[in-house]
């Protein structure tokens, strides 16, 4: 690991995700998936594929903006997913590996003292990346991504909560503090998105999403997602090169 990774003292991060993508023929994936399962299963024994039923919603402007389901291409997507605990046991570390993708998820509970760091996830991802490259004969990475999910509420940022239980969201996220006019409160739903092309040699994007946290029990709470993507990285299938870029994303 590099000597000087950025360090954040008390980040309200509840989940960190590192991913690498490649172009992989289905034949390669299917013929070697069982070997991969044999490697992963001893450490990640819970196999719970992610099942997603995807639909497309069209905004039909010519019909006065009426949103309609597009019935042409609904899609069923099943993503292989291994984890250390089942969802019933309190889902924890997981590895997702659909064709052409390796993703490792790590959860944290800063409100309960479980403060894992990027270094923890980096170590785990760094262990599995070379095995994934070898098992599936990966020739080059096509995309690298780091995704942090932040939960902003009274438990994770207690210093930003008033005695009345109000969350000083404007102090936590300055994006809300410059809206002109006189205001009383910020009221849900919160919804804000921005994408920034980052400086540097790589073609990279930072995507920022602010939205409501779906669990009403944690309210008032806001979810802040940071996603950094490096597109077409020039690292081939070098595990060291991929890890260096993930450090840069962090």
């Amino acid at each position: 690991m590099p000597n000087r990774l950025p360090f954040y003292r008390r980040p309200p991060v509840v989940e960190r995700v590192l991913s690498v993508y490649t172009s992989m023929p289905d034949e390669i994936f299917e013929s070697r998936f069982e070997d991969w399962r044999t490697l992963v299963a001893p450490e990640y024994p819970a196999y719970e594929p992610l099942k997603q039923w995807l639909i497309l919603v069209k905004d039909r402007e010519q019909e006065e903006g009426l949103p309609l389901f597009d019935t042409m291409q609904p899609e069923l997507r099943i993503t292989p997913r291994f984890s250390k605990k089942t969802s019933k046991e309190g889902f924890d570390w997981s590895i997702r590996c659909p064709p052409g993708q390796l993703t490792v998820n790590m959860h944290s509970r800063p409100d309960q003292g479980l403060t894992r760091r990027y270094g923890n996830l980096r170590s785990e991802f760094g262990r599995w990346l070379p095995r994934w490259i070898e098992n599936f004969s990966v020739e080059s990475a096509s995309k690298i991504a780091a995704h942090y999910v932040n939960l902003v509420n009274r438990h994770t940022v207690p210093k930003f909560v008033t005695e009345k239980g109000e969350l000083l969201l404007g102090d936590v996220l300055t994006v809300f503090s410059r809206i002109p006019g006189q205001h009383e409160y910020l009221v849900a739903p919160f919804d804000c998105k921005a994408t920034v092309q980052l400086q540097g040699d790589n073609k990279s994007l930072l995507r920022l999403t602010v939205s409501d946290w779906p669990d009403p029990g944690l309210a008032p709470a806001v979810r802040v997602d940071f996603i950094v993507e490096v597109l077409a990285p020039k690292v081939g299938a070098s595990a060291e090169g991929i890890m260096a870029l993930l450090d840069w994303c962090h």
Binding site: T162, K164, G165, E166, L167, L168, L169, G170, D171, F176, S177, I179, H183, E184, Y185, L186, V187, A188, P189, F190, D212, W213, P214, P216, A219, P220, A221, V222
Partner: peptide, 13 residues
Amino acid sequence: MIFTTAPSAAPDV
């Protein structure tokens, strides 16, 4: 300027 969320700002999700 806006600084706080409403006290009963349970998200409608």
